[in-house]
Design a protein around this nucleic acid. Sequence first.
DNA 1: CAGCATGGATAGTGCTGCTCTCCACTATGG
DNA 2: CCATAGTGGAGAGCAGCACTATCCATGCTG
Lengths: 206, 206
Amino acid sequence: MAELSAESGIPVATIKYYLREGLLPAGERTSPNQARYGEEHVRRLKLIRALVEVGGLSVATVREVVAAVDSDRAAYNVLGVAQRALTVFKAEVPADDREWAMGLLTSIAKEHGWKFGPDNPAADLLVGTLCTIRALGHQALLDQLGRYAEIADRIAEADLDTLEAGVSMDRIVEATVVGTVLGDRLFEGLRRLAQAAETARRYTEG
Amino acid sequence: MAELSAESGIPVATIKYYLREGLLPAGERTSPNQARYGEEHVRRLKLIRALVEVGGLSVATVREVVAAVDSDRAAYNVLGVAQRALTVFKAEVPADDREWAMGLLTSIAKEHGWKFGPDNPAADLLVGTLCTIRALGHQALLDQLGRYAEIADRIAEADLDTLEAGVSMDRIVEATVVGTVLGDRLFEGLRRLAQAAETARRYTEG
DNA sequence: CAGCATGGATAGTGCTGCTCTCCACTATGG
DNA sequence: CCATAGTGGAGAGCAGCACTATCCATGCTG
């Protein structure tokens, strides 16, 4: 275990904590008080740290995510499982606001051929966010929703191409998770830089 | 204050806490133990809750953000101030990894005409995220970076159009903050739905 | 066989975001 | 004029989270 700690740079106490919390599978036992840890444990630890430090996920969420990574090796519907664990909207909004947002979202979805059930967490996030934006009175942002949706289609294409491109089947689940969590952060950063550049482009010669 | 609490749905104790923490400006005093709160206080409370609950910001970050909203009414360089408060990457990466990521980012930035200083928080976020993705061995995601950057340019255009469209000058700072924080969440949701749709499109008839 | 490391369990720590209690004071209804 | 309830303000308290430290029986190692 000291070796695993040295390799990953994570304190032994923290590794024990992750073991307890079920984020990291137990090592292969060689005796009642000895266990062997392999490459996959190092890999898993890196994934955990990435999700926690970069992705900002809670330990509880990471547990769900790695459970999905471990169980659903059928790759089929991976995205759904990952999304269910990763996307949550906790604040609550009035029912009639929800209805309005749902209507808006449904019309957008129809335009883009998106389908979702009533319990879809991404739809829930969107409905909540839309309501919040409206409550704050930023109509202009809502007016652009269609345009943003169009761009989202572009991104999704790129996302799926990424998965198809270079990922072996036994890592596709992990790639999906990384692509979702780190992909969000990546895009956040790119958007910020692009915003700054666009601002400069528009207002610099003034 | 009871009135303010009723109007906003936030407990009095919490409002006091926000006052103490400097998120909410003090009300107009009418006597040593009485103050009047106006429309702008309700508005500010809504903003705080939106940033905390939907945006997931910490109280400390919200303090910085509202400080920016209050001070920099010159609209000029608002984005920079908002970005500085909103974008942080805390995990650390080895110096040579950083260098590699910086090189990659610089070449992308050159292609897109993006400019940034060495202390730019968005660049920092990107460098850290790129290093993490590489450490996890997801090369495919890095290969798509140029494509993502292109899409980021599209989004930034939409973002700036949003600001120019319907926002009066005295709210442009708030609109920037909302557009950044809630805009990220909004886009997250759209991306998820689009991903699900794209997945269905590609793999359904199988 | 001495001594240190191991897996495992339990308790403790520091931080965050409230929440509760107390206080001196004052607006207000009777 | 006075009892009551509500106010702004300050301090302590509390629950949850992500660790971190301590302890222990065991067993491997020089």
